[in-house]
Design a protein around this nucleic acid. Structure first.
Length: 287
DNA sequence: AATTTCATCAACCGCCCGCTC
DNA sequence: GGAGCGGGCGGTTGATGAAAT
């Protein structure tokens, strides 16, 4: 059984929104709030699909949207987040106040992708080139804007999915940590281990086997028992990395951060990502 | 000045997931 | 448990204006 279409397309306006349509949508949402997008066109008197209304509001009409050029600071952050998260634009946008996923995606496809290719990050350049070549071959007779995807880094799924399993090959596991029986937090990702079944005690138990690739099952929400909000005083995603881990296992910080959900399939981290994630200041454990 | 090519970005499309019944 | 709905996501398209020829 197929899905019903989001709306009947006949008789609906398409293309650019008019000022009047914008105003109708703004007035309606101001009066009734967001949500129930399928009802909005009918109730607001718009000849638009509900999805179209949602998109127009989220990407253009929302009052908290930041206008103007992407700043150098934002650009740096986008590049770093993209390196970490891949093409998960909504996650990236969630870390950049006032910017929408669509805006960041467009900015990447038109500007940053090229900068990366012309820049000095060999790994990302290679990824971008291979994607570009793939596209060229696919669309030999068409001229298209370059779409950057990190297809060659299998580690990053392009969809945001729930994470409950992580696979890391043993050659990437720092041995020093594997010998530490008191490791907590992300240091569990450095040994074969399982989570404690108790709801109260979510500290994972560890084994010391590192002779083979290992699989780790865990509930990210439990590990990082915190809310989605990045600390207001955090101006950098890497700081967030510290906050999330340190809060739960290193003491010291009470700010809340929930690691992004990522999938029921194993996640394979590229070596580059793993190195980044394993920077000393990212992994704290109690001594 | 006319035409072509390129760059940008709003909007659309189809797929997927979570929730409800 | 499964169907259907509502909503979110990433990829792609197409209109438009700017730059190049």
């Amino acid at each position: 059984m197929g899905r019903s279409p989001c709306c009947v397309k006949e008789g609906l306006n398409r293309g650019a929104w008019t000022a009047l349509e914008d105003q109708l949508l703004i007035d309606y949402i101001n009066a009734h709030g967001e949500g129930k997008w399928r009802r909005i066109p009918k109730e607001a008197g718009l000849k638009r699909c509900g999805k179209s209304c949602r998109l127009r509001w989220l990407n253009y009409l929302r009052p908290d949207i930041k206008r103007g050029n992407i700043t150098q600071e934002e650009e740096d952050l986008i590049i770093r987040l993209h390196k970490l998260l891949g093409n998960r634009w909504s996650l990236i946008a969630g870390r950049i106040p006032g910017r929408t996923d669509n805006e960041i995606k467009n900015y990447w496809n038109t500007t940053l992708g090229k900068k990366v290719i012309n820049g000095d990050d060999e790994d990302q350049q290679q990824v971008c080139r291979s994607v570009e070549n793939k596209k060229k071959n696919k669309n030999k007779n068409k001229s298209k804007p370059l779409t950057m995807a990190v297809e060659s880094i299998a580690a990053v799924p392009t969809r945001a999915v729930r994470c409950n399993r992580v696979v890391v090959t043993s050659d990437l596991v720092p041995h020093k940590v594997a010998e530490d029986n008191n490791v907590h937090g992300f240091s569990i990702a450095m040994d074969k281990c399982t989570t404690n079944s108790s709801e109260e005690d979510t500290t994972p138990t560890t084994t010391t086997t590192t002779s083979e690739d290992w699989v780790l099952d865990f509930d990210v929400g439990k590990l990082f028992n915190v809310s989605e909000k990045i600390p207001d005083n955090s101006d950098d995603y890497w700081e967030v990395c510290e906050f999330g881990v340190e809060d739960q296992y290193g003491g010291g910080c009470s700010n809340n951060f929930k690691w992004p959900s990522v999938g029921s399939e194993p996640i394979l981290f590229s070596e580059e990502m793993l190195k980044d994630w394993m920077r000393d200041d990212c992994f704290h454990h109690q001594s």
